[in-house]
Write a protein that binds this DNA or RNA. Structure first.
Lengths: 226, 226
DNA sequence: TCTAAGGGTTAACAAGTGTTAACGTGTGTT
DNA sequence: AACACACGTTAACACTTGTTAACCCTTAGA
């Protein structure tokens, strides 16, 4: 069960691109290579990668713009920028555009790989599904429990899924349609009403901590504030 | 509610240490400064920091050894190494010892801060959207609340967006068309009238502080005076 | 097989939110 | 002063969401 980790690599300079691609493949990554931003976006959509490595200056769509677009739909995936620019200002800009790391050319392949590994590890550590802090509550996603001090309440499967989904986008809007497709499989009238019912149920179970709220954003979805 | 983020900084070169410490404090971090590895370990144990910034070459206990020790008891806390070494080999070693990032001297303070922010996964570079002072009111953009002393009123999503937009240009004109495109998506007759309705609603909710006004600039837009 | 319990969906109605309409007021121009 | 036009305000309306309860289905145990 050792499926390869998928990487989308966007780099317009062919020689460099080839070297990096091969080096990554040697390390048992599956590399999807794009030579411009638009192509990279398509590869991202189709291949469902674990991580993105983006050159900043590319034809058609630069790395920053691309990252911004991808961040709008995916806040989790790690992004590493590669660039010839070496000004601190550019590094700042990279992080502002949602990058997680920034490597200045010329860089060593080894360092790139280490930084990739680091981001992948961090990501997998990121949410401990058995120990999620939501305000004063402790939410255990696998056990489907919500603990406040000594009191432990159990959640149903739907409740647990919904809370987990909201948590993944905490303090930001979770799109109604996104939630519905993810948990109910389809966005239709009845599922939508059902979801609203579960929002009510969650609010009840979360109301012992006033700092936690599930706020509605009419027409868009819900925000878990914590 | 907005307690400072604690950082343990270990750096044996006093001048550099002082500069970094002050820069971080300017950014509202609480810095615990150690001049060697052993001291840093004690500070780590006592202050319960959110992140560690460790020089690699230090007296008594070097940064790598220290990181390794800390990693045995805490796998979560982010660690950034600072070093004069610039060989890739050292970068690798840094990550092997459980570091999350690695900065080569000389580095820019800005870059350090951005990398800290990135690891902490927060953007406190932005204005704190949970704590916006408007006159005597406290406006929480994510919670969509307006607080005056003990009274907390809730805003709807549109109200909150509008107030936030006006606030971003406080004391200057926010262009009608700009607001409409940003919040309503399009500048047409009906959306414009809708916006005017929301201006009325906001004025009502803000009238408890006489010093705050939303003034109209005929033909151009609105100004939030505060 | 019957029954009870739990979980999820559907139904029904209440409450909240945003848009549209209608009319009023102010401002600048001729 | 008369006029056109931008904005202010209120209310009606349509639509979305909140809440409760009834209902249905599955499962486990008597």
């Amino acid at each position: 069960m050792s499926t390869k980790i998928k990487i989308v690599l966007a780099e317009d300079e062919p020689n460099l691109a080839q070297i990096v691609k091969e080096s990554l493949e040697t390390r048992n990554f599956e590399v999807f290579l794009a030579s411009n931003g638009e192509e990279a976006y398509k590869l991202y959509k189709n291949s469902n990668p674990e991580i993105l490595v983006l050159d900043v200056m590319m034809p058609k769509k630069d790395g920053f713009t691309l990252a911004k677009e991808i961040r709008e739909e995916n806040k989790q995936i790690p992004i590493i920028f590669l660039t010839a620019k070496s000004q601190t200002k550019d590094v700042l800009e990279g992080f502002e555009h949602g990058g997680n790391d920034y490597l200045k050319k010329p860089f060593s392949i080894e360092e790139l790989i280490v930084r990739i590994q680091s981001l992948l590890n961090r990501n997998s550590l990121k949410i401990d599904v058995n120990n999620i802090k939501i305000g004063n509550y402790l939410f255990n996603y696998t056990k489907q429990t919500l603990q406040l001090k000594e009191e432990t309440a159990t959640l149903t499967h739907r409740e647990s899924e919904l809370l987990y989904t909201l948590y993944q986008n905490k303090n930001e809007i979770s799109d109604r349609s996104f939630i519905l497709k993810k948990i109910w499989g389809d966005d239709d009238f009845f599922n939508a009403r059902s979801m609203d019912v579960f929002i009510t149920k969650l609010r009840k179970k979360l109301k012992l901590d006033e700092n936690i709220q599930i706020v509605n954003v009419r027409g868009y979805g819900y925000k878990l504030i914590c």
